[in-house]
Design a protein around this nucleic acid. Structure first.
Lengths: 206, 206
DNA sequence: TGCCCTACCTACCAGTAGGTAGCGAGTTAG
DNA sequence: CTAACTCGCTACCTACTGGTAGGTAGGGCA
Protein backbone atom coordinates (compact mmCIF):
# COMPACT_ATOMS: atom_id res chain seq x y z
CA UNK A 1 0.00 0.00 0.00
CA UNK A 2 2.26 2.75 -1.25
CA UNK A 3 -0.58 4.84 -2.66
CA UNK A 4 -1.57 8.17 -1.14
CA UNK A 5 -5.18 8.96 -0.29
CA UNK A 6 -5.56 10.99 -3.47
CA UNK A 7 -4.23 8.18 -5.61
CA UNK A 8 -6.61 5.73 -3.98
CA UNK A 9 -9.47 8.06 -4.76
CA UNK A 10 -8.47 8.67 -8.35
CA UNK A 11 -7.28 5.21 -9.38
CA UNK A 12 -9.61 2.51 -10.58
CA UNK A 13 -9.93 -0.67 -8.53
CA UNK A 14 -8.13 -2.49 -11.31
CA UNK A 15 -5.15 -0.16 -10.99
CA UNK A 16 -5.18 -0.47 -7.20
CA UNK A 17 -5.10 -4.25 -7.55
CA UNK A 18 -2.18 -4.06 -9.97
CA UNK A 19 -0.26 -1.80 -7.58
CA UNK A 20 -0.88 -4.03 -4.58
CA UNK A 21 -0.11 -7.18 -6.57
CA UNK A 22 3.17 -5.69 -7.77
CA UNK A 23 4.16 -4.96 -4.20
CA UNK A 24 3.13 -8.37 -2.84
CA UNK A 25 4.74 -10.38 -5.65
CA UNK A 26 7.97 -8.38 -5.27
CA UNK A 27 7.94 -8.87 -1.51
CA UNK A 28 7.00 -12.52 -1.15
CA UNK A 29 7.13 -14.02 -4.63
CA UNK A 30 4.43 -15.70 -6.70
CA UNK A 31 3.91 -18.74 -4.49
CA UNK A 32 4.25 -16.73 -1.29
CA UNK A 33 1.49 -14.31 -2.26
CA UNK A 34 -2.16 -15.31 -1.98
CA UNK A 35 -5.03 -13.60 -3.73
CA UNK A 36 -6.43 -12.95 -0.25
CA UNK A 37 -3.32 -10.93 0.61
CA UNK A 38 -3.73 -8.77 -2.47
CA UNK A 39 -7.48 -8.32 -2.05
CA UNK A 40 -7.05 -7.41 1.62
CA UNK A 41 -4.41 -4.84 0.68
CA UNK A 42 -6.87 -3.20 -1.69
CA UNK A 43 -9.72 -3.47 0.80
CA UNK A 44 -11.95 -5.93 -1.05
CA UNK A 45 -12.60 -9.70 -0.94
CA UNK A 46 -10.96 -12.27 -3.15
CA UNK A 47 -14.00 -13.00 -5.36
CA UNK A 48 -14.29 -9.27 -6.09
CA UNK A 49 -10.68 -9.23 -7.19
CA UNK A 50 -11.46 -12.09 -9.55
CA UNK A 51 -14.06 -9.86 -11.22
CA UNK A 52 -11.15 -7.80 -12.57
CA UNK A 53 -8.72 -10.60 -13.43
CA UNK A 54 -9.68 -14.10 -14.55
CA UNK A 55 -7.13 -15.82 -12.30
CA UNK A 56 -3.86 -15.43 -10.42
CA UNK A 57 -1.66 -16.20 -13.42
CA UNK A 58 -3.35 -13.55 -15.55
CA UNK A 59 -2.94 -10.97 -12.80
CA UNK A 60 0.73 -11.79 -12.52
CA UNK A 61 1.15 -11.65 -16.28
CA UNK A 62 -0.43 -8.19 -16.34
CA UNK A 63 1.91 -6.98 -13.61
CA UNK A 64 4.83 -8.33 -15.58
CA UNK A 65 3.68 -6.79 -18.82
CA UNK A 66 3.49 -3.43 -17.03
CA UNK A 67 7.07 -3.97 -15.90
CA UNK A 68 8.43 -4.84 -19.33
CA UNK A 69 6.74 -1.98 -21.14
CA UNK A 70 7.92 0.60 -18.60
CA UNK A 71 11.47 -0.72 -18.68
CA UNK A 72 11.68 -0.93 -22.45
CA UNK A 73 10.35 2.59 -22.76
CA UNK A 74 12.77 3.93 -20.14
CA UNK A 75 15.83 2.22 -21.60
CA UNK A 76 14.98 2.87 -25.24
CA UNK A 77 15.44 6.60 -24.69
CA UNK A 78 18.92 6.23 -23.27
CA UNK A 79 20.04 3.54 -25.71
CA UNK A 80 19.00 5.47 -28.79
CA UNK A 81 20.56 8.73 -27.64
CA UNK A 82 22.90 10.29 -30.21
CA UNK A 83 25.97 10.02 -27.94
CA UNK A 84 28.86 7.61 -28.39
CA UNK A 85 31.94 6.20 -26.66
CA UNK A 86 32.07 6.31 -22.88
CA UNK A 87 29.43 9.04 -22.69
CA UNK A 88 26.86 6.62 -24.05
CA UNK A 89 27.82 3.82 -21.68
CA UNK A 90 27.61 6.19 -18.71
CA UNK A 91 24.28 7.54 -19.92
CA UNK A 92 22.83 4.03 -20.11
CA UNK A 93 24.19 3.02 -16.70
CA UNK A 94 22.75 6.15 -15.10
CA UNK A 95 19.45 5.71 -16.93
CA UNK A 96 19.30 2.13 -15.65
CA UNK A 97 19.91 3.29 -12.09
CA UNK A 98 17.24 5.98 -12.35
CA UNK A 99 14.81 3.47 -13.78
CA UNK A 100 15.49 0.82 -11.16
CA UNK A 101 15.51 3.38 -8.35
CA UNK A 102 12.02 4.51 -9.35
CA UNK A 103 10.71 0.94 -9.60
CA UNK A 104 12.57 -1.23 -7.07
CA UNK A 105 9.64 -3.67 -6.86
CA UNK A 106 10.03 -4.40 -10.56
CA UNK A 107 13.67 -5.31 -10.02
CA UNK A 108 12.80 -7.82 -7.33
CA UNK A 109 10.11 -9.44 -9.47
CA UNK A 110 12.54 -9.62 -12.36
CA UNK A 111 15.13 -11.29 -10.16
CA UNK A 112 12.62 -13.82 -8.89
CA UNK A 113 11.61 -14.56 -12.45
CA UNK A 114 15.24 -15.03 -13.47
CA UNK A 115 15.68 -17.44 -10.55
CA UNK A 116 12.57 -19.39 -11.52
CA UNK A 117 13.56 -19.23 -15.20
CA UNK A 118 10.29 -17.54 -16.05
CA UNK A 119 7.88 -20.32 -15.20
CA UNK A 120 5.15 -17.95 -13.99
CA UNK A 121 5.03 -15.60 -16.93
CA UNK A 122 3.84 -16.77 -20.30
CA UNK A 123 6.14 -14.61 -22.39
CA UNK A 124 9.65 -15.66 -23.29
CA UNK A 125 11.51 -13.22 -21.07
CA UNK A 126 14.97 -13.83 -22.46
CA UNK A 127 13.62 -13.66 -26.01
CA UNK A 128 12.08 -10.33 -25.19
CA UNK A 129 15.31 -8.86 -23.85
CA UNK A 130 17.67 -10.43 -26.38
CA UNK A 131 17.38 -7.55 -28.90
CA UNK A 132 18.59 -5.13 -26.22
CA UNK A 133 21.30 -7.56 -25.22
CA UNK A 134 22.49 -7.98 -28.81
CA UNK A 135 22.40 -4.24 -29.36
CA UNK A 136 24.55 -3.67 -26.29
CA UNK A 137 26.96 -6.42 -27.37
CA UNK A 138 27.36 -4.87 -30.81
CA UNK A 139 27.98 -1.48 -29.26
CA UNK A 140 30.72 -2.61 -26.90
CA UNK A 141 32.34 -4.80 -29.55
CA UNK A 142 32.47 -1.86 -31.92
CA UNK A 143 33.94 0.50 -29.34
CA UNK A 144 36.56 -2.07 -28.39
CA UNK A 145 37.52 -2.67 -32.01
CA UNK A 146 37.92 1.08 -32.45
CA UNK A 147 40.26 1.07 -29.48
CA UNK A 148 38.04 3.29 -27.35
CA UNK A 149 37.53 0.59 -24.70
CA UNK A 150 39.86 -2.03 -23.29
CA UNK A 151 39.41 -5.54 -24.69
CA UNK A 152 36.77 -7.58 -22.85
CA UNK A 153 34.34 -10.24 -23.97
CA UNK A 154 31.23 -8.18 -24.71
CA UNK A 155 28.69 -10.84 -23.68
CA UNK A 156 30.37 -11.55 -20.36
CA UNK A 157 30.83 -7.84 -19.80
CA UNK A 158 27.12 -7.15 -20.08
CA UNK A 159 26.19 -10.07 -17.85
CA UNK A 160 28.63 -8.77 -15.25
CA UNK A 161 27.12 -5.29 -15.50
CA UNK A 162 23.60 -6.66 -15.34
CA UNK A 163 24.44 -8.52 -12.15
CA UNK A 164 26.31 -5.65 -10.56
CA UNK A 165 23.56 -3.10 -11.13
CA UNK A 166 20.46 -5.22 -10.50
CA UNK A 167 21.79 -6.76 -7.31
CA UNK A 168 21.95 -3.47 -5.47
CA UNK A 169 18.19 -3.10 -5.84
CA UNK A 170 17.05 -6.71 -5.71
CA UNK A 171 19.06 -7.55 -2.60
CA UNK A 172 18.41 -4.21 -0.93
CA UNK A 173 16.93 -5.76 2.25
CA UNK A 174 20.04 -7.88 2.66
CA UNK A 175 22.39 -4.96 1.93
CA UNK A 176 20.48 -2.88 4.48
CA UNK A 177 21.41 -5.35 7.17
CA UNK A 178 24.97 -5.70 5.95
CA UNK A 179 25.62 -1.95 6.02
CA UNK A 180 23.36 -1.10 8.96
CA UNK A 181 21.93 1.55 6.68
CA UNK A 182 19.10 1.91 4.17
CA UNK A 183 20.39 1.01 0.71
CA UNK A 184 17.54 2.68 -1.14
CA UNK A 185 17.75 6.24 0.14
CA UNK A 186 18.26 8.72 -2.73
CA UNK A 187 21.72 9.59 -1.38
CA UNK A 188 22.89 5.97 -1.13
CA UNK A 189 21.54 5.12 -4.57
CA UNK A 190 23.35 8.13 -5.97
CA UNK A 191 26.57 7.12 -4.24
CA UNK A 192 26.36 3.57 -5.50
CA UNK A 193 25.56 4.77 -9.02
CA UNK A 194 28.60 7.05 -8.97
CA UNK A 195 30.70 4.16 -7.76
CA UNK A 196 29.53 1.78 -10.48
CA UNK A 197 30.10 4.44 -13.13
CA UNK A 198 33.62 5.15 -11.94
CA UNK A 199 34.33 1.43 -11.55
CA UNK A 200 33.25 0.66 -15.08
CA UNK A 201 35.12 3.71 -16.40
CA UNK A 202 38.29 2.42 -14.74
CA UNK A 203 37.77 -1.00 -16.27
CA UNK A 204 36.86 0.14 -19.78
CA UNK A 205 38.77 3.35 -20.55
CA UNK A 206 42.34 2.93 -21.67
CA UNK B 1 17.96 -36.15 -7.76
CA UNK B 2 21.59 -35.57 -8.61
CA UNK B 3 22.79 -38.59 -6.66
CA UNK B 4 24.21 -41.61 -8.39
CA UNK B 5 23.01 -45.11 -7.61
CA UNK B 6 26.02 -45.69 -5.40
CA UNK B 7 25.41 -42.52 -3.44
CA UNK B 8 21.78 -43.44 -2.92
CA UNK B 9 22.88 -46.80 -1.60
CA UNK B 10 25.52 -45.40 0.73
CA UNK B 11 23.78 -42.27 2.04
CA UNK B 12 21.43 -42.30 4.97
CA UNK B 13 17.78 -41.36 4.41
CA UNK B 14 18.43 -38.17 6.32
CA UNK B 15 21.20 -37.19 3.91
CA UNK B 16 19.05 -38.08 0.91
CA UNK B 17 16.31 -35.81 2.26
CA UNK B 18 18.77 -32.96 2.76
CA UNK B 19 20.05 -33.36 -0.81
CA UNK B 20 16.59 -33.43 -2.30
CA UNK B 21 15.42 -30.51 -0.13
CA UNK B 22 18.41 -28.45 -1.20
CA UNK B 23 17.55 -29.06 -4.83
CA UNK B 24 13.84 -28.34 -4.44
CA UNK B 25 14.29 -25.19 -2.35
CA UNK B 26 16.86 -23.87 -4.84
CA UNK B 27 14.60 -24.66 -7.76
CA UNK B 28 11.22 -23.46 -6.52
CA UNK B 29 11.84 -21.56 -3.29
CA UNK B 30 10.57 -22.18 0.22
CA UNK B 31 6.90 -21.50 -0.46
CA UNK B 32 6.98 -23.24 -3.82
CA UNK B 33 8.31 -26.48 -2.36
CA UNK B 34 6.01 -28.84 -0.47
CA UNK B 35 7.15 -31.58 1.87
CA UNK B 36 5.37 -33.98 -0.48
CA UNK B 37 7.68 -32.88 -3.31
CA UNK B 38 10.76 -33.59 -1.23
CA UNK B 39 9.48 -36.89 0.13
CA UNK B 40 8.49 -38.05 -3.34
CA UNK B 41 11.96 -37.16 -4.62
CA UNK B 42 13.49 -39.36 -1.95
CA UNK B 43 10.92 -42.12 -2.51
CA UNK B 44 9.17 -42.01 0.87
CA UNK B 45 5.94 -40.46 2.25
CA UNK B 46 5.69 -37.14 3.98
CA UNK B 47 5.14 -38.56 7.49
CA UNK B 48 8.32 -40.60 7.09
CA UNK B 49 10.19 -37.45 6.18
CA UNK B 50 8.83 -35.78 9.31
CA UNK B 51 10.28 -38.64 11.27
CA UNK B 52 13.73 -37.27 10.42
CA UNK B 53 12.97 -33.54 10.74
CA UNK B 54 10.48 -31.99 13.16
CA UNK B 55 8.95 -29.65 10.57
CA UNK B 56 9.53 -27.82 7.29
CA UNK B 57 11.27 -24.84 8.87
CA UNK B 58 13.76 -27.05 10.68
CA UNK B 59 14.54 -28.92 7.48
CA UNK B 60 15.14 -25.66 5.66
CA UNK B 61 17.29 -24.38 8.51
CA UNK B 62 19.42 -27.52 8.34
CA UNK B 63 19.87 -27.10 4.58
CA UNK B 64 20.89 -23.51 5.13
CA UNK B 65 23.30 -24.36 7.91
CA UNK B 66 24.94 -26.87 5.57
CA UNK B 67 25.29 -24.06 3.02
CA UNK B 68 26.84 -21.55 5.42
CA UNK B 69 29.33 -23.95 6.92
CA UNK B 70 30.54 -25.19 3.51
CA UNK B 71 30.87 -21.64 2.20
CA UNK B 72 32.65 -20.29 5.24
CA UNK B 73 35.07 -23.20 5.16
CA UNK B 74 35.71 -22.77 1.44
CA UNK B 75 36.26 -19.03 1.59
CA UNK B 76 38.25 -19.02 4.81
CA UNK B 77 41.07 -20.90 3.10
CA UNK B 78 41.37 -18.35 0.28
CA UNK B 79 40.91 -15.29 2.49
CA UNK B 80 43.54 -16.30 4.99
CA UNK B 81 46.11 -17.22 2.34
CA UNK B 82 49.48 -15.54 2.84
CA UNK B 83 49.30 -13.62 -0.46
CA UNK B 84 48.74 -9.88 -0.83
CA UNK B 85 47.94 -7.17 -3.38
CA UNK B 86 46.18 -8.20 -6.57
CA UNK B 87 47.23 -11.84 -6.19
CA UNK B 88 45.05 -12.13 -3.11
CA UNK B 89 42.04 -10.48 -4.75
CA UNK B 90 42.34 -12.80 -7.74
CA UNK B 91 42.74 -15.82 -5.48
CA UNK B 92 39.55 -14.95 -3.61
CA UNK B 93 37.58 -14.30 -6.80
CA UNK B 94 38.69 -17.62 -8.28
CA UNK B 95 38.01 -19.44 -5.03
CA UNK B 96 34.52 -17.93 -4.98
CA UNK B 97 33.90 -19.08 -8.52
CA UNK B 98 35.10 -22.59 -7.75
CA UNK B 99 32.95 -22.71 -4.66
CA UNK B 100 29.83 -21.45 -6.39
CA UNK B 101 30.43 -23.63 -9.44
CA UNK B 102 30.49 -26.71 -7.22
CA UNK B 103 27.34 -25.68 -5.34
CA UNK B 104 25.07 -23.72 -7.72
CA UNK B 105 21.97 -24.74 -5.73
CA UNK B 106 23.39 -23.01 -2.68
CA UNK B 107 23.80 -19.80 -4.66
CA UNK B 108 20.16 -19.82 -5.70
CA UNK B 109 18.95 -20.43 -2.15
CA UNK B 110 21.20 -17.63 -0.93
CA UNK B 111 19.76 -15.28 -3.56
CA UNK B 112 16.21 -16.18 -2.62
CA UNK B 113 17.05 -15.57 1.01
CA UNK B 114 18.56 -12.17 0.18
CA UNK B 115 15.38 -11.29 -1.74
CA UNK B 116 13.19 -12.35 1.16
CA UNK B 117 15.53 -10.66 3.65
CA UNK B 118 16.02 -13.94 5.45
CA UNK B 119 12.52 -14.52 6.75
CA UNK B 120 12.72 -18.32 6.44
CA UNK B 121 15.98 -18.90 8.22
CA UNK B 122 16.29 -18.25 11.90
CA UNK B 123 19.88 -17.03 11.85
CA UNK B 124 20.82 -13.43 11.12
CA UNK B 125 22.33 -13.97 7.69
CA UNK B 126 23.84 -10.51 7.30
CA UNK B 127 25.21 -10.65 10.82
CA UNK B 128 26.83 -13.95 9.98
CA UNK B 129 28.53 -12.61 6.85
CA UNK B 130 29.44 -9.17 8.20
CA UNK B 131 32.84 -10.29 9.60
CA UNK B 132 33.85 -11.45 6.10
CA UNK B 133 32.48 -8.25 4.63
CA UNK B 134 34.38 -6.08 7.09
CA UNK B 135 37.55 -8.08 6.53
CA UNK B 136 37.27 -7.57 2.77
CA UNK B 137 36.57 -3.84 3.24
CA UNK B 138 39.63 -3.44 5.43
CA UNK B 139 41.75 -5.28 2.90
CA UNK B 140 40.72 -3.17 -0.08
CA UNK B 141 40.95 0.07 1.90
CA UNK B 142 44.47 -0.79 2.95
CA UNK B 143 45.59 -1.70 -0.57
CA UNK B 144 44.08 1.53 -1.93
CA UNK B 145 45.78 3.62 0.73
CA UNK B 146 49.08 1.99 -0.16
CA UNK B 147 48.47 3.00 -3.77
CA UNK B 148 48.32 -0.60 -5.03
CA UNK B 149 44.69 -0.24 -6.18
CA UNK B 150 42.82 2.65 -7.74
CA UNK B 151 40.60 4.65 -5.37
CA UNK B 152 37.09 3.18 -5.00
CA UNK B 153 34.66 3.09 -2.11
CA UNK B 154 35.47 -0.28 -0.56
CA UNK B 155 31.93 -1.09 0.61
CA UNK B 156 30.35 -0.31 -2.74
CA UNK B 157 33.16 -2.18 -4.48
CA UNK B 158 32.43 -5.38 -2.59
CA UNK B 159 28.69 -5.11 -3.14
CA UNK B 160 29.33 -4.67 -6.85
CA UNK B 161 31.61 -7.69 -6.87
CA UNK B 162 29.13 -9.76 -4.86
CA UNK B 163 26.41 -8.96 -7.38
CA UNK B 164 28.57 -9.53 -10.42
CA UNK B 165 29.80 -12.95 -9.32
CA UNK B 166 26.67 -14.37 -7.69
CA UNK B 167 24.38 -13.38 -10.52
CA UNK B 168 26.09 -15.60 -13.04
CA UNK B 169 25.16 -18.64 -10.98
CA UNK B 170 21.85 -17.58 -9.51
CA UNK B 171 20.40 -16.41 -12.81
CA UNK B 172 21.93 -19.24 -14.81
CA UNK B 173 18.59 -20.45 -16.24
CA UNK B 174 17.90 -16.95 -17.51
CA UNK B 175 21.42 -16.52 -18.92
CA UNK B 176 21.06 -19.88 -20.64
CA UNK B 177 18.14 -18.55 -22.62
CA UNK B 178 19.81 -15.21 -23.28
CA UNK B 179 22.95 -16.81 -24.72
CA UNK B 180 21.31 -19.88 -26.28
CA UNK B 181 23.96 -21.82 -24.43
CA UNK B 182 24.44 -23.53 -21.07
CA UNK B 183 25.94 -21.04 -18.62
CA UNK B 184 27.10 -23.69 -16.16
CA UNK B 185 29.32 -25.86 -18.34
CA UNK B 186 32.87 -26.03 -16.94
CA UNK B 187 34.18 -24.19 -19.99
CA UNK B 188 31.67 -21.33 -19.76
CA UNK B 189 32.20 -20.95 -16.02
CA UNK B 190 35.95 -20.81 -16.63
CA UNK B 191 35.49 -18.21 -19.37
CA UNK B 192 33.27 -16.05 -17.21
CA UNK B 193 35.64 -16.35 -14.27
CA UNK B 194 38.55 -15.26 -16.46
CA UNK B 195 36.48 -12.35 -17.68
CA UNK B 196 35.53 -11.18 -14.19
CA UNK B 197 39.14 -11.47 -13.05
CA UNK B 198 40.44 -9.44 -15.98
CA UNK B 199 37.60 -6.93 -15.61
CA UNK B 200 38.36 -6.35 -11.94
CA UNK B 201 42.08 -6.21 -12.65
CA UNK B 202 41.45 -3.48 -15.24
CA UNK B 203 39.34 -1.56 -12.75
CA UNK B 204 41.65 -1.92 -9.76
CA UNK B 205 45.24 -1.98 -10.98
CA UNK B 206 46.81 1.36 -11.73
C1' DT C 1 10.29 -65.34 23.83
C1' DG C 2 9.49 -60.79 24.94
C1' DC C 3 10.75 -56.05 24.42
C1' DC C 4 12.38 -51.81 22.61
C1' DC C 5 13.78 -49.17 18.76
C1' DT C 6 14.03 -47.35 14.06
C1' DA C 7 11.78 -46.30 9.97
C1' DC C 8 8.32 -46.63 7.37
C1' DC C 9 3.15 -46.73 6.39
C1' DT C 10 -2.21 -45.34 6.00
C1' DA C 11 -5.69 -42.38 7.61
C1' DC C 12 -6.90 -38.37 9.27
C1' DC C 13 -6.97 -33.35 10.99
C1' DA C 14 -7.60 -28.24 10.58
C1' DG C 15 -6.40 -24.57 7.72
C1' DT C 16 -5.87 -22.30 3.40
C1' DA C 17 -5.23 -22.16 -1.49
C1' DG C 18 -7.50 -20.80 -6.11
C1' DG C 19 -11.78 -20.60 -8.15
C1' DT C 20 -17.15 -20.60 -8.97
C1' DA C 21 -22.23 -19.68 -8.21
C1' DG C 22 -25.31 -16.67 -7.40
C1' DC C 23 -27.28 -12.63 -4.89
C1' DG C 24 -27.98 -7.57 -4.55
C1' DA C 25 -27.15 -2.55 -4.65
C1' DG C 26 -26.00 1.18 -7.79
C1' DT C 27 -25.43 3.02 -12.23
C1' DT C 28 -26.33 3.54 -16.95
C1' DA C 29 -28.85 3.06 -21.53
C1' DG C 30 -32.82 2.54 -24.22
C1' DC D 1 -39.55 2.52 -16.01
C1' DT D 2 -37.08 -1.04 -16.99
C1' DA D 3 -33.33 -3.93 -18.74
C1' DA D 4 -28.61 -4.62 -18.66
C1' DC D 5 -24.29 -4.09 -16.77
C1' DT D 6 -20.77 -3.33 -13.10
C1' DC D 7 -18.81 -4.54 -9.00
C1' DG D 8 -19.11 -5.57 -4.67
C1' DC D 9 -20.60 -9.50 -1.39
C1' DT D 10 -21.50 -14.40 1.09
C1' DA D 11 -21.33 -19.15 0.63
C1' DC D 12 -19.51 -22.85 -1.21
C1' DC D 13 -16.40 -26.20 -3.89
C1' DT D 14 -12.17 -29.09 -4.57
C1' DA D 15 -7.31 -29.64 -4.03
C1' DC D 16 -3.58 -29.44 -1.31
C1' DT D 17 -0.83 -27.77 2.66
C1' DG D 18 1.87 -28.88 7.11
C1' DG D 19 1.32 -31.81 10.74
C1' DT D 20 -0.52 -35.75 13.91
C1' DA D 21 -2.27 -40.37 15.47
C1' DG D 22 -1.76 -44.78 15.44
C1' DG D 23 -0.23 -49.06 13.44
C1' DT D 24 3.38 -52.36 11.65
C1' DA D 25 7.55 -54.84 9.80
C1' DG D 26 11.94 -56.01 11.11
C1' DG D 27 16.51 -55.72 13.59
C1' DG D 28 19.18 -56.11 18.01
C1' DC D 29 19.31 -57.92 22.44
C1' DA D 30 18.58 -59.93 27.15
Amino acid sequence: MTNTQDEVASKSTRELILDEALHCFADRGYEGTSLNDIAAGVGIRRPSLLHHFPNKEALYADVFEMLLSEWLEGLEVAISSPTSGWDKAELVIRAGFDLFASTPDYVRIMRREALDSGVHVGVDLAGFLRPLFDKACAYFTQEMQMGNFRQHNAQHLIITGYGAILTYFSDAPFIDELLNDKALTPQNIQDHCDHVVSFFRSALLV
